[in-house]
């Protein structure tokens, strides 16, 4: 029983993975912007001090040494010193400051 359940779950994972692969291939063939078709965030990091995150979902936590954002892939954690939200709109966030790390938390 337990074995069957596990197999079923694996199957589901497989089909999910296959669909994602197909989409990715489609975007590559058609040269579509990936972040929109796949609905994933796009991060642009300029040097160590300027990070732009497009296609995010919301702010979970913000202070000068840590920013956590909700994205479709999970939580994106940015750590550093003197972090400032330079600009924020419904599509993108611009984080300025001394950025030390980026981490995705599932």
């Amino acid at each position: 029983m337990g074995v069957g359940k596990r197999r079923k779950k694996r199957d589901k994972n497989n089909t999910e993975g296959a669909r994602r692969g197909l989409r990715e291939k489609m975007t590559e063939v058609l040269e579509l912007p990936k972040e929109i078709v796949l609905n994933v965030p796009r991060l642009t990091l300029i040097g160590m001090s300027n990070l732009i995150i497009e296609n995010y979902k919301g702010i979970i936590e913000y202070d000068s040494s840590r920013v956590r954002l909700n994205t479709s892939l999970g939580i994106l954690k940015i750590t550093g010193n003197g972090l400032v939200i330079k600009e924020i709109t419904s599509e993108d966030v611009m984080v300025d400051g001394d950025i030390r790390s980026l981490e995705f938390q599932k």
């Binding site: 913000y62 939200i85 924020i88 709109t89």
Partner: peptide, 17 residues
């Protein structure tokens, strides 16, 4: 507060904690 502002299309910038 920030999230609600953004949802209501209120533009914010230079946010400093």
């Amino acid at each position: 507060f920030i999230n609600i502002c953004i949802r209501r299309q209120i533009f914010l910038w230079d946010i400093k904690r």
